[in-house]
Design a binder for these strands. Structure first.
Lengths: 215, 215
DNA sequence: TTTTAATCCAATGGTTTGAA
DNA sequence: ATTTAATCCAATGGTTTGAA
């Protein structure tokens, strides 16, 4: 189990380095810091994951930070864990989950992906949704918020607006939008996004009434 | 609320009578008994629903009994309650159930359908499944078990065998079978039926191995 | 004994809380 | 102050239990 975690740590490091292949400066420093992943030099367990910072597409976070490509990669990892859980369930003739459930998070943890947890994944689902549904808009938002020096919380909040615009264009049915996208369909629609979509539908209805369309 | 239940009682009586339109004998007696539905003559609440008996297709149970057409009708009623819950949920922008959930059973009860409850509906789901998937086989089984004078429990048990035969013919994927049928897809696959389907797949795999197909 | 339905239970989706 | 993740909670799917 300890061995598995160590192997996994190296895989994660490799994933982040591959994003940085043709960028040599600072590599030593980054490596030093990343060798301390999982445990610190004193042998104590590292308490929590490095916080996310707003990065441009393709940019790797330096220092004790994680970038947004890495955040989105975690969603892809969860999808892979779900698929593995589904294969096992079907093989055993058991109920087969269609979404990333508690069972999948538990499986991910047991498989050594201790850096994945439910509150974190749920917290950023709508950001991942924007990335899936309109990568160009998502990328542009990241560039703008990075340039302005905004923190992750501000970027996360800002993801709602372009998302709701997409939902509105497609008839306010957020469930249909999630379900019809192969990578998004495995995630529960976040409550706040559902509420925003519904409010927007009501606003549109009121607007069209006041303009006389329904009179 | 009391008024709603009374109206509902009359609707249920009417449904059972319409099955019996061109069969006049005993009508008075049946009516007398059915007037006591819900409450008895002493004003106390009736304790439980009349038990089911094995009836032929089209046959109405006499006396303090319910027939199998009525049982299957309860599944259709649940479907209607689900649809109403779905309309309300969508209108409010809330999460929309795709299955008959606790929420739907609660709604049915509040709507006056106190004769619908979860354990009962779950108990007979596979019988309803056979009725949906092969009505001819289902009807024939009812006739045979009625003629033999078998009780409901024996009929219920007997429904598994022809169902598993159907599942086997279609590749042992009970979830796919339920999901692809419009009236069945709203019901959870019963655990025992899932297990039987899986066992049958294993049996088939072993059989084909011993015959040399996989050697 | 057969059949019904209230009751219970572990595990869920969802969120709050407080630690770092 | 920002961000992470352990903890908690009501409501769920599923079943057992015991009443009729």
């Amino acid at each position: 189990m300890v061995a598995m975690e160590k192997k996994n740590k190296k895989q994660r490091k490799r994933w982040r380095e591959k994003m940085n292949d043709d960028d040599d400066d600072d590599d030593e420093k980054v490596e030093d810091e990343e060798e301390n992943e999982g445990k610190n030099i004193n042998g104590g367990e590292r308490q929590r994951e490095h916080p996310f910072i707003v990065t441009e597409p393709g940019e790797v976070a330096r220092g004790k930070k994680n970038g947004l490509d890495y955040l989105f990669h975690l969603y892809e990892q969860c999808r892979e864990f779900l698929i593995r859980v589904q294969v096992i369930a079907k093989d055993r003739g058991e109920k087969c989950p269609t979404k990333v459930t508690n069972q999948v998070f538990r499986y991910a943890k047991k498989a050594g992906a201790s850096y994945i947890n439910k509150p974190k994944m749920r917290h950023y689902v709508h950001c991942y949704a924007l990335h899936c549904l309109d990568e160009d808009v998502s990328n542009e938002l990241r560039r703008v918020f990075k340039e302005r020096g905004e923190n992750v919380g501000a970027w996360r909040q800002a993801c709602y607006k372009p998302l709701v615009a997409i939902v509105t264009r497609q008839g306010w049915d957020i469930d249909a939008i999630f379900n019809s996208h192969p990578r998004l369909s495995i995630w529960y629609v976040p409550t706040k996004l559902r509420q925003l979509s519904h409010s927007e539908r009501n606003n549109a209805a009121i607007a069209s009434t006041s303009v006389g369309i329904n009179c």
